[in-house]
Design a protein around this nucleic acid. Structure first.
Length: 313
DNA sequence: AAACAGTACAACCGCCTCTGT
DNA sequence: GACAGAGGCGGTTGTACTGTT
């Protein structure tokens, strides 16, 4: 493969920020003669720049159809979606956003979206949950960083415990998995205990994980397991054998699931809320196997279980 | 007001890919 | 098929700007 001589090899060529005069020369030349060869353009246009520099200046800044200014929420979502699909293929992403250059999108990703995803507990590279909790918590504001607020966090354990259960039940009640009734409860406990999520929601961290939704992530076959997470695109029940092989379930469905607002947790209100949640799941009582109830009872009682340790720590 | 930290973004660099010979 | 030139791409850097202490 051939390689163009580095633009840095000619020290007589100007580098750095473009002046207004240079911009005008470039615009004027291209308007009159078209782009043609970038290699020859600077000489013809009377610019002491390399062709690459001219091309970059034109495509990223000077071309008439360039759109400047803040990215709209729609554009943000498109970028996130496309990034989950194509990775750092900025030019490919830019081709879906008229008026935006690959450079601009790249900068916007690195300075905004990347951090936004990190703060949401999502690894920007993989668009999957951050598996390293230290990394995740380090990204949180210190006011909610459990490492730095250990005492306060500890005091809130009971409240969180109940809240997690509420979230789990809420998620289950809005999940297609709820069709599976008692098995769902039991399996979900196993899944959550292993660090999984239900329907894109991570009950352990009391937050909804919002995923860029890419059609090609829809099938179980097409997605390598990040840390034992299954992606599914159908509303069908997950086969029992498949569930047992994995740690988590995540849906790439477009549906938004909203978690219940955090509530003060007294024993009375929590019990009532839990019972309400269970009742709202439309699971026939007789289908809830006794071992499932026992599992959840043990879960609630056993503060030393690995699940609660995950939450507390 | 000054110093420092964080952010945004234009521009550069080096490698890769495409295309013509 | 091998080679060379040109353009394209993604990663990185430099710097201006803004916010915070």
């Amino acid at each position: 493969m051939g390689r163009s001589p580095s633009s840095s090899s000619d020290n007589s060529l100007k580098k750095g920020p473009w002046t207004l005069e240079e911009d005008e020369k470039l615009i004027d030349y291209i308007q009159k003669h078209g782009k043609g060869s970038w290699q020859l353009l600077p000489k013809k246009a009377g610019l002491n720049r390399c062709g690459k520099s001219c091309r970059l200046r034109w495509t990223n800044y000077l071309r008439p159809d360039i759109k400047r200014g803040n990215f709209s929420p729609d554009e943000e979502q498109i970028i996130i979606d496309l990034h989950s699909l194509h990775g750092n293929r900025w030019s490919t992403i830019a081709s879906h956003l008229p008026g935006r250059s690959d450079n601009e999108i790249k900068n916007f990703w690195n300075t905004n979206l990347r951090k936004k995803l990190l703060r949401s507990g999502i690894e920007p590279k993989t668009h999957r949950p951050i598996s390293d909790l230290n990394l995740f918590f380090n990204l949180l504001p210190t006011s909610i960083n459990p490492w730095e607020n250990a005492l306060e966090f500890h005091a809130d354990q009971a409240n969180q415990k109940i809240q997690v259960l509420q979230n789990i039940l809420k998620v289950l009640s809005t999940s297609p998995l709820s069709n599976t009734g008692a098995n769902c409860l039991g399996e979900s406990y196993n899944l959550i205990q292993s660090g999984g999520c239900i329907n894109g929601i991570d009950p352990l961290h009391l937050q909804e994980l919002s995923y860029p939704l890419s059609p090609n992530l829809g099938s179980i076959e097409s997605v390598p397991e990040p840390f034992g997470t299954i992606y599914m695109n159908s509303m069908e029940t997950i086969p029992e054998n498949l569930v047992n092989q994995t740690n988590g379930i995540r849906s790439t469905s477009n549906e938004e699931y909203s978690l219940p607002a955090l509530v003060p947790a007294t024993t009375e209100t929590c019990t009532a809320n839990l019972m309400n949640s269970i009742n709202s799941m439309h699971i026939p009582n007789q289908t809830i196997a006794s071992n499932c109830i026992e599992t959840w009872g043990n879960l609630i009682d056993d503060s030393s279980s690995s699940l609660w340790k995950d939450i507390y720590h």
